[in-house]
Design a binder for these strands. Sequence first.
RNA 1: GCACAGGUGGGUGAGUGGUUAAAGCCAACAGACUGUAAAUCUGUCCCUCCUAGCGAGGUACGAAGGUUCGAAUCCUUCCCUGUGCA
Length: 322
Amino acid sequence: MAQNVVSAHDQIADRESPLAVVLGPTASGKTALSLRLAEDLGGEIVNCDSVAMYREFEIGTAKPSPAERARLPHHLFDFVEPTEYFTAGEYARRARTLLAGIKSRSRLPIVVGGTGLYLRALLDGLFPGPQRSEELRERLRMLSTARGSTYLHRILTRLDRAAAEKIHANDIPKLIRALEVCLSSRRKMSELWQQGRDALQGFRILRLGLDPDRAALYDRINRRAQQMFETGLIEETARLLAKYGDAARPLASLGYKQAAQFLRGELTREQALQAAQQAHRNYAKRQMTWFRREPEVRWLAGFGDDPEIQTEAVRLLKPSPG
RNA sequence: GCACAGGUGGGUGAGUGGUUAAAGCCAACAGACUGUAAAUCUGUCCCUCCUAGCGAGGUACGAAGGUUCGAAUCCUUCCCUGUGCA
């Protein structure tokens, strides 16, 4: 059934145009696959990788190289300032605007990335909740430090029992968001949830998922992290630290965090590398857990830079004749 | 060769006679995720069986013996490892 989605929709709804999504864990070859797809099918790349959206974070994010980007249009890379907070909601708005533009040019949008929440925000939408409030969060964070996360959970239970039951008492960030929603909207978050999500309209979505062998993936992750260290990740981190201090948000993310620990003398270079490799592996695992739940994914058992996988992917995306 | 220190589950590392199949941490595996998400959190984690439980049985703290109602914990010998002295 899944294989017929393209042709079936072609017949029924000609107002819907195709949208390709390439998802998969870090280092699975999403970039390589998306380039091939874009070139074969006349596509434009739309990034869905939260850290690659930040300016000045280059080596640790494995962004497509300038040469690769010169081959065809790439969107939503390098547009967030390092000190800026960026969110899934903001991403969804920008990406949707972009998608509409690509559609109007009759090109194939190819959304590529590993950030599950952002992808869901784009495709399925978010609930109609308030945006983040730094002041409120600051107060909640202080409360959490002073009284513990269980205390936050108790407050949430009083404000919104249904939401509290879904969030574990130890999960501080999610507790803070739920409290923020309840307090600043003066409504229960669980009620706002029931209003549903604003799913993306006007596209028939074709999800391609990369699912390489786990051991091979971990091996590739290790090598790539080492390569990042050898090709200037530490220098890049030092530059960012000097320029922004801790204010640059992605400095807390994979690779950068460990490079910063090395620079502060908390780890040796070797320890930092091993910790970075470990963090990338753990991340890949979490991504797989998220994407397994993604609906209607055509899984490809291999890496995206494998020509056979690419050919299979192209075939899946091409409308079947007749 | 002698003298100390030590050998614990995939790793690290507690435990020094009895609620100990053995803390905690890590890894691994599985899961959650509705505006910080490359974040954050949860579960499982010796083997087998089932009526799936704070259930039953079997193994287990370098090895082999011993003491004891009872040992990872005490004793003996042996084997390894580190450090010091030769």
